[in-house]
């Protein structure tokens, strides 16, 4: 988010809680994976601009439970932007209008009287479980295919035995911050998981520790994402624009470069 120096300052002692936003929500309701879903309209009132988007949904759900209705299912856990469990399409944008996670989106990004569409991630590799919750285990299977360094516990050499240039360590870190939320897939017109896979390939490929398995890693992870039914990458860049961790398109170039190198070197995916 951008903040200016004249921006809002500290509320003085004794300030009252702000409330008062009234909103119309159109929420995707789907009882289960095999059942057809539809958009259902709800009203929420007296929402505070300081609420997070999920706290606003909590208010809706408390109302629904009290009325004896089924509350809206959505995934979430840490509510601080790091676990990657949350993720909603908000007015057609993955994680909504700000480049952050859904749990870190605050209602001050909306106006009183707004109407908001809320849908799950849409991708055939992420089937809907219920309402807004989807199954993202395909991501774990991509990691299983090679997103690791094989180093059994207890076999590691002294940490300082291999220095890592600061620049490489920093770049590896930037790629490693991917939280596996799936917004990249949801934002992509092809539902491609390329940014997710590329982030891991880049993280491990930049470090000296990741070199021995570098070729096998990239061919196997790419083969797995194809097997999961994710779409192909056509370098549109919607993924990176929606990514709450700012994973860059450069990681995808790096993956393509590594993949080519690996194939030339004779690496082939395990069947």
């Amino acid at each position: 988010m951008t903040i200016t120096d004249q921006g809002p300052h500290s509320a003085p002692a004794g300030t009252q809680e702000k409330r008062g936003m009234n909103l119309t929500l159109r929420v995707w309701r789907q009882k289960g994976p095999q059942v057809k879903g539809k958009m259902v309209t709800y009203k929420v009132t007296d929402i505070s601009p300081d609420m997070s988007f999920l706290e606003m949904l909590d208010v809706l759900n408390e109302q629904l439970i009290e009325q004896g209705d089924d509350p809206v299912a959505f995934d979430h856990d840490c509510r601080e932007g790091i676990c990657g469990m949350c993720g909603l399409m908000i007015n057609g944008q993955a994680h909504g209008p700000q480049q952050t996670t859904t749990c870190q989106l605050h209602m001050r990004s909306f106006k009183d009287g707004d109407s908001i569409d809320i849908e799950p991630w849409r991708a055939s590799a992420f089937p809907v479980i219920k309402d807004l919750a989807v199954d993202r285990r395909a991501f774990d299977r991509i990691i299983q295919a090679g997103g690791y360094i094989s180093v059994p516990t207890g076999t590691a050499p002294e940490a300082h035995s291999v220095p890592v240039p600061k620049k490489d360590a920093d770049n590896a870190f930037d790629a490693a911050t991917c939280i596996g939320c799936g917004a990249c897939v949801a934002a992509c017109p092809n539902a491609s998981s390329m940014l997710f896979t590329a982030a891991k390939v880049t993280h491990l490929g930049l470090l000296p520790q990741g070199q021995p398995e570098r070729n096998d890693r990239v061919v196997n992870m790419v083969a797995q994402q194809d097997r999961e039914g994710f779409g192909g990458c056509t370098n549109i860049g919607e993924c990176s624009a929606a990514c709450p961790k700012g994973i860059s398109m450069e990681t995808i170039s790096r993956l393509n470069h590594d993949l080519l190198g690996a194939l030339r070197a004779g690496a082939r995916p395990k069947s």
């Binding site: 690791y148 360094i149 180093v151 516990t153 207890g154 076999t155 590691a156 050499p157 002294e158 940490a159 291999v162 220095p163 890592v164 240039p165 600061k166 360590a169 920093d170 590896a172 870190f173 490693a176 993280h203 491990l204 470090l207 520790q209 990741g210």
Partner: peptide, 14 residues
């Protein structure tokens, strides 16, 4: 620390 570094944990470096 040894184990984590070998796994590729990108700790801050100088």
């Amino acid at each position: 620390i040894d184990q984590a570094v070998a796994q590729g944990v990108p700790f801050a470096r100088e």
